[in-house]
């Protein structure tokens, strides 16, 4: 018998407002894969990620995590998932370090510093988020990918407001992640330059 896939999406229907976005979507994701969700604006790329993350409920259909139905209770998958959406998910009133310690309380200071120096944020360690630029805030949000050890990454337009150098750093980190047995599901309008992805097209 074949072992169950990392994530199985079976006959998934998603509704936003009064509009049905996905009709009977099926796909499998196995360990070590980068899945890129494609589709026009409003085709439901973000909604699909949100449904997998458990932010919004699906209209119908099931999601299996290692063969286990998690459609009703997402918490088992959520413990292994890092979701970064359009909104950064970092608090304006807190500093960079405080934000990261909120998301990941058990990170060591060494790890925190090395991560931030990779992303060029080390000088901003105790700067308040509200005085950072959009690109810097995005880097802070993405730095969670280095310090939190989660198997599944759900990234909604992660390259937005990143410069070329930031994109390269992120792509190489994604590659490391999948080589180490992780899974990435992302939406992006940009072509991935250095990594190979499997594409899923949402037809609108």
């Amino acid at each position: 018998m074949q072992s169950p896939a990392f994530l199985t999406i079976s006959d998934l229907w998603i509704e936003r407002g009064e509009r049905v976005l996905c009709k009977g979507l099926n796909f499998n994701v196995s360990v070590g894969e980068i899945v890129r969700v494609l589709g026009d604006n409003g085709a439901g790329k973000s909604s699909l990620l949100k449904v997998i993350a458990g932010v919004i409920p699906s209209l119908e259909g099931c999601i299996y995590y290692f063969g286990q139905d998690i459609t009703q209770d997402h918490s088992r998958l959520q413990q292994d998932t890092l979701y970064i959406g359009h909104l950064s998910g970092v608090k304006n009133m807190l500093t960079v370090e405080e934000n990261l310690r909120w998301h990941c309380p058990d990170v060591t200071t060494d790890k925190l510093h090395s991560t931030l120096s990779i992303l060029g944020l080390l000088p901003l360690l105790s700067t308040s988020i509200k005085s950072l630029s959009a690109g810097q805030v995005r880097r802070v949000a993405l730095s969670r990918l280095w310090i939190q050890r989660k198997k599944l990454w759900l990234l909604d337009e992660p390259f937005v407001s990143l410069d070329a150098e930031g994109v390269a750093i992120l792509e190489s980190h994604m590659k490391q992640h999948v080589v180490a047995g992780g899974v990435v599901i992302l939406t992006t309008h940009q072509a991935l330059t250095s990594i190979h992805s499997r594409d899923i097209d949402l037809l609108s």
């Binding site: 997402h74 918490s75 359009h86 909104l87 998910g89 970092v90 304006n92 998301h103």
Partner: peptide, 16 residues
Amino acid sequence: KEDYSDGSLEQLVVSG
């Protein structure tokens, strides 16, 4: 309000 606009509320929902 602020948690809603900066996405921390969303992070609470997906935190498990």
